[in-house]
């Protein structure tokens, strides 16, 4: 223990926190994949429910651990603490936790008896599913590796997707289809939009100053 203590420090604790956030995203992808496949892939929701809830509890636990570790960082470092990074991490960890929650919401739709695996628009839905799943994994990588160039590209892509989700939601609001068809789709597109927005929030932490975190979509100048 004594030797461990004096072995040297550096910024390893903040790096550990970043790794924890990245792992949260990997767990989020697992939850998302399991949840969306119970709605679109024909998987029995009852078979994956336990796993989804367990993974989400783990994500929530990590969120609390990260917050504690950030308090420790500020307490120990005082004025030398990396305050922008601490504030950004506090915000980003919440985004990572919310992705897990929205994935759980998708599972809730499936668990209520809705199955879209044979729906007419399944191809469109699975395209979005694959895109979001890939985007979660890519966000984890980009965040871990601080890949600013890819973050910019992904933000542009995410911005376009947000507009598409809005169009789908709007279509469901004005459809003549019965509620059993429209409501799950409206909710699903809404959850897609929220998950994408939270991923974009995480990406903004790499490319934008702290005061403009989460506000990428409100200023068109940012899209340039």
């Amino acid at each position: 223990m004594v030797f461990d203590f004096f072995r040297g420090g550096g910024d390893t604790q903040l790096e550990k926190i970043e790794a924890q956030i990245s792992q949260m995203l990997i767990d989020d992808r697992h939850t998302f994949d399991a949840a969306i496949n119970s709605l679109l892939g024909g998987t029995d929701p009852s078979l994956v429910g336990k796993d989804i809830k367990k993974t989400d509890r783990g994500v929530n636990k990590t969120e609390r651990a990260v917050r504690r570790e950030l308090v420790v960082h500020v307490s120990v470092r005082g004025t030398a603490a990396d305050i922008p990074l601490v504030l950004a991490s506090m915000s980003v960890v919440k985004d990572a936790e919310r992705i897990g929650d929205f994935s759980k919401n998708i599972w809730d739709i499936a668990n209520s008896g809705i199955d879209l695996s044979n729906a007419e628009d399944i191809k469109t839905l699975t395209t979005y599913r694959d895109h979001i799943s890939k985007m979660i994994a890519e966000t984890a990588r980009v965040f871990r590796e601080r890949d600013v160039a890819t973050a910019h590209e992904m933000l542009k892509e995410g911005d376009a997707l947000q507009d598409e989700y809005d169009e789908h939601i709007d279509a469901q609001l004005h459809t003549d289809q019965p509620a059993r068809e429209a409501v799950p789709r409206a909710l699903l597109y809404r959850y897609f939009k929220r998950i994408t927005a939270h991923l974009m929030n995480i990406l903004t932490s790499l490319v934008m100053p702290i005061d403009r975190l989460d506000y990428y979509d409100e200023d068109k100048a940012d899209r340039a």
């Binding site: 223990m1 004594v2 461990d4 203590f5 004096f6 072995r7 040297g8 420090g9 550096g10 910024d11 390893t12 604790q13 651990a65 504690r68 570790e69 420790v72 960082h73 307490s75 120990v76 470092r77 030398a80």
Partner: peptide, 27 residues
Amino acid sequence: MAGQIEASMNSLLSKGAGVTAMMIGLL
């Protein structure tokens, strides 16, 4: 030592009090 102090404090938060905590304070 800031990095090590942070690591020790984090381990203190997860493992709790006792002689280990005393050793952390001492070191």
